[in-house]
Design a protein around this nucleic acid. Structure first.
Length: 718
DNA sequence: AGCACGCCGACT
DNA sequence: GTCGGCGTGCTC
């Protein structure tokens, strides 16, 4: 009896067999609907066979085949690799490759940018001011000559669709192509090296300083791949970055067929993108980490932009690393892969040092007029009394304002203050469900936990002793914004953090304002760090970054270095020289001296030597077992057992080290007590042989009160 | 992951 | 007496 082996989206360790009814064409890669228990599920056929190990009586039939899409074989292989490498359920790993199955009529997708017609302009201007739902969009349409549809919320797209029916808006058409950017020597050399290697596996590390024009290198390499009839897969860390990147791509390459893939797309749009990729119609597939599973029949080149970025590692469900999956896939398909960054991860750095990756350097900014910014380190402690704004930074901002230039002040913490303490007794705002302090917020006023979302009223007096002298400790974006407003009352200030800027629309509107020169000072967190060109921005202030140096996580310094370089890179990108002022009390720390001398390479070598000395990743290979339960004793009991099993298995796996369980950095979160345990080996293969045996023994442990997971190649030991 | 089955405590 | 709490184990 013909059998289909189906990977179903359940946390079971195996696939499930179903018999194939006569007349139903079921082949490897087909998406089928089946019954599992009482449920009906869609899964992907990973193999067909002439019979099954399972009792015939237990087998049920394949219900039907969904559509005509097939998951390509290399993607099936990638999913199998991901399941095995990351110790995940085979079916959950394969679920990553399924197209969105909601068969809703593919909405006539709006693409690119739209502009108002004259009639539309009249109609919208005449719209009553209280037509609130459309108001923001209307204002933006009336202001802008063209609006990028990708930056809109789904609600706004609905409105826009309506307007298009009335012929109020029409597609803006392809923007006039930017004058073809002359590649400099380093750029054309890098692009040529990649282009020459098309047709076979090769891995490149493109190490280019901020503003060195890595995108142009990717584009030139992509041109070569596409000209030969190939498809290019380009991964980016965040959806925030895609609209701008797409704009640039479309402007530079009119007519380029791009498909976007990220989780913020509606099911219909995602399905369209999936089909465009699968049919070969899309020449460039641009997306976040999940795009690494896209069907690409003519894949010719893979690019991972900002490859150091932590968001490539999925932190829940299937804990895969999209960069590593991309490398695996490139090897499997025998095509080149490009890993680009201004601050390469130490994994990639080591790969380049060992000769596994070919190193391509872009040591200068592409625009010859744009110098790398000058960096100054000034003491932070001295600034504490002035809400964090030291004299140098104050003078710098004043200078910028006088010249009509923009400044950015960065602090990596939202809210007003880190915590609230009582000046009289020892009381401190503490989360009841986490081992963390509650952050002070003023807009709106509240004490909030950034780990579990718990919220309390902002107390007027100490809940413990009644004293009214409560002191907000530490610096957040809201406090900084207030201090800047007090210091520069006439400056136009915008705050950008997760609280102020929800959704893509909000971010795009700040970006537009900055571009329209309606903002003098930007205050914000991480959100501001990445990949946005602000030509008038000449000063960057970085506050509170020393906090990262206290972190117990071994990757903290590497992450800080990347963040500093990214933020500093916002300064002075177009002609005007930039300045970066970093307030630190550790000016001799290698991470700051590297920033001063613009020498990330030196820092990466130093950090790598430290990892070598301490036998830490990427020199060794690690997995992290993390567990949580409501009761401390349950976690401890589980971890104790897990540790014992690990030690016992070492008789068979001598090359693997099993460390003792320790409380997690955040020992309690949302009412769960948390612990973790590290296992590692100098050899990846040894760790890979150990992990399944260990996992199976742990799965057999009684007591399900503890939730646990294995994280292979964890982003940190936190 | 769901979902059912099963074996123990407080309710109309 | 049974309603339902969640701990345990199975699903082709």
């Amino acid at each position: 009896m013909p059998i289909a082996r189906v990977a179903l989206p359940v946390a079971a360790p195996t696939t499930f067999d179903y018999w194939i009814p006569e007349g139903l064409a079921v082949e490897r890669g087909a998406i089928v609907r089946v019954r599992l228990g009482t449920r009906r599920l869609a899964g992907v056929v990973i193999a067909t066979a002439s019979d099954s190990e399972v009792d015939r009586a237990k087998l049920s039939p394949v219900v039907d085949v969904v559509g005509d899409e097939r998951v390509p074989f290399d993607v099936l292989d990638l999913c199998a690799f991901v399941a095995s490498y990351y110790q995940e359920a085979i079916g959950l790993a394969h679920a990553l490759a399924l197209p969105p199955l909601r068969a809703q009529a593919a909405s006539r997708a709006l693409r690119g940018s739209c502009r108002l017609t004259d009639e539309g302009r009249r109609a919208l201007a005449a719209l009553p001011a209280r037509a609130r739902s459309a108001c923001g969009l209307r204002d933006r349409m009336l202001q802008d000559t063209a609006l990028d549809v990708d930056t809109l919320t789904t609600h706004e797209k609905t409105i826009l669709r309506e307007w298009r029916r009335h012929r109020y808006v029409v597609p803006a058409g392809e923007r006039a192509a930017r004058p073809a950017l002359e590649l400099n020597a380093a750029q054309s050399e890098a692009a040529a090296a990649i282009a020459q290697s098309l047709g076979a596996y090769a891995a490149f590390m493109v190490n280019g300083v901020t503003g060195s024009g890595k995108t142009e290198v990717y584009l030139a390499a992509a041109d070569a791949a596409i000209a030969a009839g190939g498809q290019v897969l380009m991964l980016v860390p965040e959806i925030n970055l895609t609209p701008q990147l797409v704009d640039r791509m479309r402007a530079a390459r009119p007519g380029l067929r791009v498909a976007l893939m990220h989780s913020a797309l509606a099911a219909g749009e995602r399905r369209d993108a999936w089909r465009a990729a699968a049919s070969g119609e899309a020449q460039l597939v641009l997306g976040t980490r999940l795009a690494v599973f896209a069907p690409l029949p003519s894949l010719a080149l893979v690019v991972v932009d900002e490859e150091h970025d932590a968001s490539y590692k999925q932190q829940d469900n299937v804990r895969y690393h999209a960069r590593d999956a991309a490398i695996w896939r490139a090897r499997r398909r025998d095509v080149p892969v490009v890993l680009g960054s201004a601050t390469p991860s130490l994994e990639t750095w080591l790969g380049a040092r060992d000769g596994r990756y070919r190193r391509l350097d872009l040591p200068h900014r592409a625009d010859a007029r744009a110098q790398l910014p000058g960096v100054r380190l000034t003491p932070h402690r001295a600034a504490a009394a002035q809400d964090g704004i030291g004299d140098a930074l104050r003078a710098g901002i004043a200078g910028c304002l006088a010249r009509g230039e923009q400044s950015l002040v960065f602090v990596n913490r939202r809210g007003f203050a880190t915590s609230l303490v009582c000046a009289a007794c020892k009381w401190e705002s503490q989360c009841t469900r986490c081992s963390a302090r509650l952050t002070v917020h003023r807009q709106p006023p509240a004490l909030r936990c950034h780990h579990c979302g718990h919220e309390e009223r902002l107390p007027r007096a100490c809940p413990s002793c009644g004293n009214v002298d409560l002191v907000p400790l530490g610096l957040g974006t809201q406090r900084l914004e207030r201090a800047l407003a007090a210091a520069f009352p006439r400056a136009r200030i915008a705050r950008v953090d997760r609280d102020s800027t929800r959704g893509r629309h909000a971010f795009a509107s700040v970006r537009d304002k900055v571009e329209a020169n309606a903002i003098d000072i930007l205050v914000g967190t991480q959100m501001l760090a990445k990949g946005h060109d602000f030509p008038r921005l000449t000063l960057v202030g970085i506050l509170g970054s020393d906090n990262a140096l206290y972190s117990a996580d071994f990757r903290a310094t590497e992450r800080l270095a990347a963040l500093l370089v990214q933020v500093a890179g916002r300064a002075g990108r177009a002609g005007s020289p930039g300045e970066v002022i970093v307030q630190t009390d550790f000016p001799d720390h290698p991470v700051y001296t590297a920033l001063l001398s613009h020498d990330y390479a030196q820092l990466a070598d130093t950090l790598l030597a430290e990892r070598e000395a301490a036998a830490l990743p990427p020199v060794t290979h690690a997995a992290l077992l993390s567990a949580e339960a409501h009761r401390r004793e349950d976690v401890d009991a589980f971890m104790h057992a897990a540790h014992e099993i690990g030690i016992e298995l070492r008789t068979l796996h001598a090359e693997v080290e099993v460390f003792s369980p320790v409380a997690a950095l955040l020992a309690r979160r949302a009412g769960y007590e948390r612990s973790q345990l590290v296992v590692q080996s100098a050899r990846r293969g040894a760790l890979q042989r150990f992990l399944p045996a260990w996992r199976e023994r742990m799965e057999a442990l009684p007591g399900r009160r503890t939730r646990w997971a294995i994280d292979v190649d964890p982003a940190g030991f936190g």
